[in-house]
Design a protein around this nucleic acid. Structure first.
Lengths: 195, 195
DNA sequence: GCTGGAATTGACTATTTAGTCATTTATGTA
DNA sequence: TACATAAATGACTAAATAGTCAATTCCAGC
């Protein structure tokens, strides 16, 4: 019985991911989600008390998966540049492999359907990223910019590159990912102020 | 009478801008828009045959305003760097001065509520930007990246900085804008490949 | 002040919505 | 097999929706 339960819950989350990403939160009815998941309309409410709870649970799950992937094998890198580069690859590759989740996050990260509570809980999963930036500022590798600005630029640039790869479809994806990192690295580090 | 007509149309567009940005397209009812604009529910449909027409007209108008501002005084700059820098300031300052329009564009640029026709018409207003990037590639100032990647990175970085300024509220906004340009310039130009 | 046509109105409709709940089905245990 | 409990169902409801349209208001020119 436990098995079946998890199946249905997962099916509902997957259906919600697809439909919310395609048509938005208000553009998707709970009936559509249930149908896509292959369950009755009432079943959705056995797992999620409201539509809002559903999207918040989904958002949390996806962001958690991303943060987990983002930090993978970062600390085993030798140089600071290699650590940042590893994180860049983790981010971009996850985005390419998980288009739907990637677009979902981008669409709902500042949506009023996501509660501030969810946002706070999710934020905690990303402290290691903030810490890595602080490390770079402390050791002088990163330029003298506010930490907040650096984290934002790094993260949003990764989003830009994923979108670029998915939408403009360059022949050589790996090249595009590496180019993206070059731009970000030379932009955010300190040792290039020829001007 | 003509005056009154234009007033109501403008009021409807302004109300739609506010509500769509706050609550999204499907999250906003036509009745809410009419109420916010101070007109009867039927009046909206005198100016816009459907809700879709309304948001498309609005999107077009806002994007046109942005493109117009973006190109202002760019050609009178002497160096290539100064041209790009002027464009950067135009973009970021417009975003800060027009928060609602700025967030509206960000939210709906890839929304299915905006038709591909609207998107195509809007695109034409931005050829001058693409041309400026081509110029930089030709004269060797920009790094050897695909033009599409450069335009995207430049534009998205401006969005990132506007968001950073509006959300993180740094004490010195002008400093933040200039920092943002430094990051983008050193990231996208060729003369910094110390690596 | 009168008149004709355009602009404005809001009550109205057919449809869709999130969420409920009494009933039915499935499952583990003995 | 029989029982107890948890899960699944879908018809149902009250509220909200985009868009219509007959009636009203407005105003320029006479």
């Amino acid at each position: 019985m436990k098995k079946q339960v998890e199946n249905k819950k997962a099916a509902l989350l997957q259906a919600a991911l697809k439909l919310f990403t395609e048509k938005g939160f208000h553009g998707t009815s709970t009936a559509q989600i249930s149908k896509e998941a292959g369950v009755a309309t009432g079943t959705l409410f056995n797992y999620f008390p409201t539509k809002e709870h559903l999207i918040n649970d989904l958002y949390f799950e996806v962001k958690e998966e991303l943060s987990s992937r983002m930090g993978q094998d970062v600390q085993i890198q030798k140089t600071y540049r290699e650590k940042l580069r590893k994180m860049w690859y983790n981010l971009v590759e996850w985005g390419i492999e998980n288009q739907e989740k990637f677009h979902f996050v981008g669409q709902f990260c500042s949506s009023p359907s996501i509660t501030s509570h969810t946002r706070e809980v999710v934020m905690e999963e990303y402290v290691f990223f903030h810490d890595l930036v602080m490390e770079g500022l402390a050791n002088g590798e990163l330029g003298d910019y506010p930490a907040e600005m650096i984290t934002t630029m790094f993260y949003q640039s990764s989003r830009t590159i994923v979108d670029y790869i998915l939408y403009s479809e360059p022949q050589d994806r790996d090249r595009a990912i590496e180019n993206g990192f070059q731009v970000v690295w030379s932009g955010l580090t300190r040792n290039n102020l020829l001007f």
